[in-house]
Amino acid sequence: MHYRLICFDLDGTLVETAPEILDAVNDTLEQFDLPGVEQSQVERWIGHGTHELLVQALAYASGVEVQAVRAMPRLFAIGQAFDDHYARRCGTRGRLYPSVRETLYELREHGVRLAVVTNKESRYTQRVLSQHGLNTCFDRVVSGDTLPAKKPDPRGIEDCMRAFAVPPGRTLFVGDSSIDAATARRAGVAVWLLPYGYNMGQPIEACAPDRTIPSLASITDTASSSSSS
């Protein structure tokens, strides 16, 4: 196999998490007497980390500017409430996308190093991975609060390449959004995108990935063929 390191985004790439994030967001909004939001809105807000998603939801539900939400004195308390709700909801309605587990196992059998690079905060990342039995599948996990900067900053991918001594030419990033595409480009690595995730309502083709793949099942076949082409 050509690629010796493959980094994956989490939400919208490995796990469909929007339904349970929606539940936790609406639990929180209800607790603070605010109207709920729709899943389609949550899907557009996913990508910059759970805290930013909550800020967007609060701004929409309150009818105020995002900057005003960030300055709210009670934002910390609302964030703690969301943390409690998401801890309870995590794993209840999320699901693995097709062929995720099988593909990861096959890649490991090929000796490929596997990593997660996500903007999701580490406490949520670990919950999702654990709930879906993926916590032993990865050699490295870089969350949104692991390093001083998060995607589209390339340091998460660079951290993984450095840890495993793999050059950019042998590294692949698999994701589902323009954020993932920009991160890979800045790190100088190939990027393959999936069309079914959370790209803020935009078509994935607009991100100009090196490849668009229909599912993770095609990674092993496509990666193998690319090494012989």
Rank of each mutant, 00 (worst) to 15 (best):
H2V: 09
Y3L: 11
R4M: 12
I6T: 02
I6S: 01
C7E: 00
C7H: 00
F8L: 12
F8G: 05
D11Q: 08
G12F: 03
G12N: 04
V15E: 00
A18T: 06
A18N: 09
A18L: 08
P19H: 11
I21S: 02
L22H: 02
D23K: 06
A24L: 01
V25F: 15
D27M: 13
D27N: 15
D27H: 14
Q31E: 15
F32Q: 10
L34T: 04
P35D: 03
P35A: 05
E38V: 15
Q39H: 09
S40Y: 10
S40D: 15
Q41P: 03
Q41L: 14
V42T: 11
R44T: 07
H48F: 13
L58Q: 00
L58K: 00
Y60Q: 12
A61P: 00
S62Q: 13
E65W: 01
V66F: 06
Q67A: 12
A68L: 14
A68Y: 06
M72F: 03
R74N: 02
L75N: 01
I78Q: 07
D83L: 13
D83K: 15
H85N: 14
Y86R: 09
Y86L: 14
R88N: 07
R89P: 03
C90M: 13
R95W: 07
Y97D: 08
Y97Q: 08
P98V: 04
R101W: 07
E102N: 07
T103W: 02
L104G: 06
R108Y: 07
E109I: 08
G111Q: 08
L114N: 07
V117H: 05
N119K: 02
E121I: 14
Y124C: 07
R127N: 12
V128E: 01
S130R: 12
Q131R: 15
H132M: 06
T136Q: 09
D139W: 04
D139T: 06
R140W: 04
V142T: 06
G144M: 04
L147R: 05
L147G: 06
A149M: 12
A149G: 04
K150D: 04
K151A: 05
K151M: 06
K151N: 03
K151S: 01
D153E: 05
D153T: 00
G156E: 02
I157T: 05
C160H: 03
F164W: 10
A165E: 12
A165D: 14
V166C: 06
P168I: 10
R170S: 15
T171H: 05
L172N: 07
F173S: 06
G175R: 12
S177D: 06
A182G: 08
A184H: 01
A184D: 00
R186M: 12
V189R: 00
V191Y: 01
W192I: 12
L193T: 03
P195E: 13
Y196V: 10
Y196M: 15
Y198N: 05
M200R: 15
Q202K: 15
E205D: 13
A206Y: 09
C207R: 05
C207Y: 04
A208S: 14
A208R: 14
P209E: 14
I213S: 11
L216Q: 06
A217I: 11
S218Y: 08
I219S: 03
T220P: 10
S224F: 10
S224I: 10
S227I: 07
